[in-house]
């Protein structure tokens, strides 16, 4: 593969066969660009690209598109997250064009958490199209150079197309089929939901490899280091789609409160080591939630530095 689809750094890293390491950054609850730039400092040089979340958990924040533009200006590569909850197809296509014009080269296509989980539960949701169709839409715009209605695009947006996958949601047997559909729709790479249940993930990856899906798409395993046992408890109870084994909570509780953060990082590092060896896994997506300053340390200790 000599010619890339998008020319993004992430695409180059993956096509060259390197183990990818991506990060995540939540925009501020305000127009505080300075706050965002502080976070960028920790991510620069530690990861291949950074996901800019889009009103995650349905809480209003600075727009992911604006966050991506600030990131590009700062010399960091963004992965523009877009959810189907807040935009119809017109807004989506226009934001994709705008993002590309601002230098964005990666996108992650998502359904979006339901607004009832967020801070404006009274809101009307959109869901004009779903995440599967958003993938197909970005691909059509890139590969055919056309809008959804078939009209030509003057300078098509060449995006490296990402999608999410939660191997832990039900029905488990169907998850690999849904992943296959995302790949058929046009996903170039997948970032999975945070993985805590390693047994289940191994089982899932076996199905992925058996179907040869890892050869059609790059799969990045989602890792979230736990700051303490309380965070693990909270995520287990209140965050939809999380599968957190009791053994993990027990392990965190088993150490002194002051040492729980270090224990959480150790668990994440053990996971990353296993993912490096796991067949079909092309990289890790590190979601250090409001813990961006720990990313350089985790990357260093995981042995993924320097980045290519």
């Amino acid at each position: 593969m000599t010619e890339t689809k998008s020319g993004s750094n992430l695409e180059k890293v993956l096509t060259a066969g390197h183990f990818a390491f991506t990060g995540e950054c939540g925009p501020p609850k305000g127009a505080n660009a300075q706050h965002l730039k502080e976070k960028f400092k920790y991510l620069k040089g530690s990861v291949d690209c950074v996901n800019m979340t889009d009103n995650q958990t349905a809480v209003v924040r600075m727009s992911s598109l604006a966050g991506c533009a600030l990131m590009v200006a700062d010399g960091l590569e963004p992965n523009f997250q877009m959810v189907c909850r807040d935009r119809n197809r017109l807004a989506m296509m226009s934001d994709i064009l705008g993002a590309y014009a601002l230098g964005v080269r990666n996108m992650l296509c998502l359904s979006g958490d339901h607004q009832s989980f967020g801070n404006h539960p009274e809101a009307k949701n959109v869901h004009d199209i779903d995440s599967m169709q958003l993938i197909a839409l970005v691909k059509k715009m890139r590969d055919e150079g056309k809008f959804l209605n078939g009209e030509e695009i003057d300078v098509p947006p060449k995006m490296f197309i990402g999608a999410a996958c939660n191997p832990f949601a039900d029905p488990f047997e169907f998850r690999v089929h849904r992943l296959a559909t995302k790949i058929s729709a046009g996903a170039d790479f997948i970032q999975t939901q945070c993985i805590f249940n390693m047994d289940k993930f191994r089982d899932f990856m076996k199905q992925v490899v058996d179907k040869g899906l890892h050869e059609r798409c790059y799969i990045l395993a989602g890792v979230t280091p736990m700051k303490n046992a309380g965070m693990a408890n909270f995520m287990s109870k209140y965050v939809p789609g999380m599968d957190i084994p009791d053994s993990l909570i027990k392990r965190l509780k088993g150490v002194d409160k002051r040492d729980q953060a270090e224990e959480g990082i150790k668990i994440a590092l053990e996971q990353i080591q296993e993912f490096k060896e796991m067949e079909g896994v092309a990289g890790v997506h590190l979601m250090a939630i409001e813990w961006e300053h720990k990313v350089p340390e985790i990357a260093e200790r995981a042995g993924v530095l320097p980045r290519p």
């Binding site: 169709q133 039900d170 849904r178």
Partner: peptide, 20 residues
């Protein structure tokens, strides 16, 4: 479907129950 998905279920489906 709370999100009117044409390609579900979303990542929030657990034990046959909607996340919402």
């Amino acid at each position: 479907c709370a999100k009117s998905l044409l390609h579900g279920p979303c990542g929030g489906s657990a034990n046959g129950i909607c996340e919402v």
